[in-house]
Every structure is written in C-alpha cells, then in structure tokens.
Nucleic acid binder design. Sequence first.
DNA 1: CACCCGGAAGCGGG
DNA 2: TCCCGCTTCCGGGT
Length: 773
Amino acid sequence: MKMLPVQLSLNPPLGLWSDMLWRCPPAQPSQLAELKTQLPPSLPSDPRLWSREDVAVFLHFCEREFDLPKVDYDLFQMNGKALCLLTRADFGHRCPGAGDVLHNVLQMLVIESHMMQWHLPNSPVTPTSRYPLSPHSHPPTPTWPPIGAPESAFHQTSHLAPHHFMAPNSVTLSPPPSVDSQASSPPQSHDQSQPQQNGTSNSPSSSSSSSSSSSAHNGNSSSSSSTSSTGSTSSASATATAAAAAAAAAALSANNAFSALKHQHQQQQQQQQQHHNATSASSHHSDSDEESYSEPPAANSTIVNFSAQSYQAAAAAAAAVAQYNNSPPTTPILKDMPQSLKQQIKNTFVNSWSQQQQQQQQQQHLNLEQQKLPNLGGGSVSAPTTPSYMQPVKREFFPDKTDNRYMQPVKREFFPENTEPNTNGRLLWDFLQQLLNDRNQKYSDLIAWKCRDTGVFKIVDPAGLAKLWGIQKNHLSMNYDKMSRALRYYYRVNILRKVQGERHCYQFLRNPTELKNIKNISLLRQSVGQTNGTNGSPGATNSNGSNSNVNQSPSSITNSPTQTPASQMQTPQRPSSQGNPNHLTLPNSISSAAAAVAAAAAAAYGPPPSSPLFMHAINGAFHYLSSNGVPPNSPAALPTTPNDKFQFNIMKNEQNSVTSHETSGAASDEMKPTDLSVSGSSSVEKRPYSSPSANDDCYPLIRNADGLTTIKLIRYNESEGGAGTQQQNSGLNDSNDNQQQQQRNTPTPMDSESSEMESSPSHDSMGATDLRK
DNA sequence: CACCCGGAAGCGGG
DNA sequence: TCCCGCTTCCGGGT
C-alpha cells in the first residue's frame, strides 16, 4: 500500500504534502493549506459538511491526486459527517490501498476546518471572545491552547514552504472580518498590514502606498481575484493565489516567526491587493485614516487559506477593507464598489464568516459530543493577553507584537470544542466585546474601554464603528444612529446602559460570558417555557411591560443572567416560580438559586450535572447563598450594599451606576439574559457589569481554583419592586419603568465565567418580550 | 447640530 | 409560523 502518496503526482506542493501526510498524519496547517488549494473548490472546507456527492468528489480527488488504487465509491455512500467518523481501519477496509491516505487527508482537512473555525469564525475578534476581560476572569486555561504543538508544526512547515505554511496559520482570528478590516491590524502584520492597507486602500489610486508595499505583481491576479479567479484555476495558480492570500492572512496574524517570510508574503499580498484595488472600482483613498485603521482586516482574519476561491474572496475583502480603511469613516464603504466586489467582500467577511461560524458550531457540537468535555471551563478560552484595561481611547494601530494571537491558532484548531458559545460577532454586543477585547487593540480607534472593569466603554469613532457593524451585518447603510438604536434595545435587557453625561459612552452590564451563556439559556428557556407555560415567552406583557414585566419576569426569571438560565432551565427545582408570573417567588430560595445556578452552569458548560464544572458551579452557588454572598472564590465578599467595591468607580460616576436597582426584582429576574427580548422596561441603568467586586480587576467573575467562575451575587437589600426581596441580583436588573425611576440597587457582580450566575433578579419585565416591545 | 431616547414597523434568519 | 435581533424611521428631548 502506498500509504501515501509518495508517489503523488501532485504538484510540487502537493508533493510535499503528500510527503508530509505520509510522515505526519495529521498534518500541519501549511500542508493543509496546500492540500486545500488542490481540492475542488466546491468542497466545503469542513469535511463534515460534505454531502455524499462531495465525498465522492473528495475520493475522486484523492484517487487522482495521490494515485491511489481505485476506490470503491459504493463503500463510501455517506456524507462528510459519516466519513469523518470512519476510523483509519474503516478506511483501510473500504479501500485497502488507500485507506491511510484517505484517512490522513481527511483528518487534515478536519483539523484545518477546526482551525478555521476557531480563527475566523469568531469573527470579530474571536480571540477575544474568550475574553480576558479581566485577568482574573479568565480561567486558568487559556483558551488558546498551548501553542506549542500546532505552532511548532506550523513553523516547521513554514520552513518547508513559506507560503504554504502561511496559509494555514494565517487564518486567524481576527476580528470580525469586517472589523478587522478596519481597525485592526495585526501586530506583526504591521508591516504587511501597511502594505496591504496601502494597497488596498489605495486601490488604484493609492498607488503610492501600494507601490511601496507591493512589489510587482501581476495585474492579472487582481482581476481574477476580484472576480474570482475561479477556484478552478490551475492548481498552480490557485496555489499561488491561495498562498498569497494565506500569506496575507498569515502575515496579519502571523507570528514573528514569519518575519523572514514576510517579505515574500507581503509582496504577494501587496500584489494581490493592488490587483484587487485596481479591480475594485471604488477606491477611497483616504489614506489619512489608514494608519489608524491600519490593517486590513480581511487579511487578518478572514481570509485564510485555501483555495483560490478563498483567496479571491479574501483579496476582494482585503481590497474592500483597504478601501474602507482608507476611506473616511463616513464614507460608505462598500457602496461604491462594484457589485462583484461587494459580493466578494460580503462573502469574505460575512459569508465566509458565517459559514465558518456555522462550521464551528457544527464542529463544536461534534466535538462536544465526541469529547463531551465540558471543557469550556470557563470558557476562558483565551486569556486576555494584553490587558488593555482601561485603555484610553488612544488609537493603536499596531498592537503589540506580543500578542499571542499568533500562537493561538494552533491551539484552537485542535480544540474548538472548548470554545464558548460563539455568536461570532453576529450579535451587536458580541461584536462590541470582540472589538473591545481585541488583544491587539486594533479597534481602539473605533471603540475602547474606558474602564474594563466596570464595563464602561466609549465609542471613539461612532461612524466608523457603525460602518464596521454594518459590514458585519451586511447592512451597508448602517450608521451610528441606527446602531445606537440597537444599543438602546440592550438597555431593556440590561445588557447595556448609557453612561450619562458622556457621549458615546456605554456600559456593559453583563459580561460576555454571561451573555454568551445566555444564548444557551435562551434555548433552555424555550424548553423550559414549554414546560412551564408561562415563561417563555414572551410574553407578555403588557404593553408596557413595565410592571407586568416584573411579575412575569419571574417566570422567566433569571436572576441575573446566569440565573436566568436556571430559571429557564428550570429545572425541576424551581418550577414553581416560573409559573407565576407575578412574583417571583423563587429567587429567594436557595434552591431556586441553586437551580438557577445549575441552569446557568449547564448553559455555560453544557455538560450535564455530572460534570465537575457543573457541580462546581452549583456548589459555588450554594455556597454563596448560604454564606451570603460571597462566592467562595471571590476575594472579597460582596458588599451587600452597593458599595464600593462594586461599584465601579467609573460607573459610579456615571450615571447611576449607582443607582439603585430595583432590585426587586428580586425574584424574578427579569431578564433573561438571553433574551433580549425581555424587556424590561426601559430604563436601564442598571448596574454595571458586575464588577468584580473584590477584584481589582474587576470583572465580576470570580474564578475558582478550578478555574470555574463562580458567581457572585450581589444582594440588594431592598426589595422592592414587587417582589421584593431578593437579594441577589446581579448586576442587572431590570428595568421597569418604575424601576427605572427607582433605583437599582447595586449590582453585584457575579462572576461567572463559565458558570457564572448571578442572581439578580431582575424582575423586569419579562414579559415584555422583545426588546422591541 | 449632534446626541440621545424610545415607539413603531419591518426584515431576515433560525 | 413564530420569535429573535436587530434595522429603519421617526418625533421628541437635551
């Protein structure tokens, strides 16, 4: 058996490839990249997404490329998912002479797709997703896995062929595709970025910049890229393009290691960009801004590897980005572009992104199922590398090179499952979080933390941010006015609140983890709601929502975000409360809280109760409840009163942070985290994120030794609102109108990273379902 | 004038 | 079909 293709007839690159495959099974990214370039463009990057036909195409491809003995297609009448489940032995049985090769190739593709997902998927800044909001908050386990392996591999590969490796690695996480484009620039890429930017931005006109960076390139490529050269393009060309694209991407994300290669890549990129630019009709040139925006996001994150198609798209995206970057904030970024370009861009940023995201999700599911690891652990996926706390608004175009990102890639790929639930920046809050937490602070010129601890941030460039958001959502006419409306909807759900007196300053009332959990929660809730009846939904609500909310909320309950889940989950434990719309009875009882916690934990971790993490969370919750509050881990107990600690300093100043919340809500909570829909009423101001009380760092979350986050609940003394009592609240609360007026108690932060829970009841509305209403 | 607010209607995706 | 999460518009307030 030829295991591998040593013989391959592949193109030169493949040759390497095959070799590689042969020696190292799951191969390195770079190899993958190459391999990918060779694959029929029509094949989804994630083998698990393949249809039967795709599987056949793949087999045929391998057969041909690796000179494999004839494959019996009848034995592979399955989709990609099934194919991926086949073991090496299975392959061997079905295809004696080529089983290993097929298996290896497939594994590589799978791995790669994982990587992709990781990196790209998260669009906006994926990495951040894990956030490091506060150092503490992060779970011990870095999301990014140890770079070690992968990276090393990567490097190695790089040696082999610079461009090759580039691709794979390149992938990256950059912020939302769109995002990246603008602001960020990867640290290293710096160099590259500039060129790219220049090139891109310039578009035709930008010749100067482009010229500098770009080396000669073929014009052709440009056209091809923009149009799409077609993946079909000859393998060689495709490869080249892919490599270039990858290089670009890589460059952006790339590590220092690449430095040597940079030149080449840069050149390629530049060339490509130039081409793109040229092709792209529109071109804004405003170079001025470029710097600020610097890197072409596209390159960074999105693009990535693979096929010529990808490359093209990437190129287009890059060009678009460049344009965007260059263009003054106000300029409509994509509008001017030709449609083809627009589409490509969209595809790149948006579509590819979304696809990747989807893939990720799928993968995650698979992984979870397969591994069943809760890992998430906290989701801490990433540690915050650079604490950018409070950064002033300054712009940093070039992030520090220290960035870990580069490293990240490696890890992620292999363990996507660890990832937290991702919204991939599709949700506004996530998008903002990702930008804010970008390790490189690439987006600091668009949005920056004023006080990370308190969750206060400032939109530095409203127009630019809105555009970026528009790109992300594919609503090119997005502007700050519209985006801000979306932000205002978050008031209802206590995700955000406005910092009074300061323009463009908002405060997150919930930390990302919570928000992410919410997602899951919402799902849970649905189920729960069904059982319960009321909950769910929506309910409710009176028109006003305000009051009704309160009551209703209970049903939904959620104490703080985290709790919410619980309520939703509802576990059996707490059902009662749900039932009643009115008061929330629940929250008070520990059990209910526990339930909430459990729910939250479940949401966060996914794993069933049995999982340690889950139990941990529950225990922590109990602990807290029993003790009052202080989460086991939390360094400090929370003040029952809104005190200092909590308060975020900053926030305090701001509006209300202080406010009182209403607490009340006690019981219920109003918000369901996830649901934005819940609305409370309005007002918002709730409390700020949770700050970590004790922590200096601030984030509300506290981590246990295990790495779990515990929740901190804050209690309010008061009760109010209706229900009264309850103490726990987390930070958010609701907002009833009344409440609004009233004040909110202070929030308590909880933490959670993964599990977090808060308990805050907010009562809020609940009913109100949607944000809308 | 820009910002901010929130109601109302609508849209696209899941 | 419904719900969610916005998007778009708008009138009004500061």
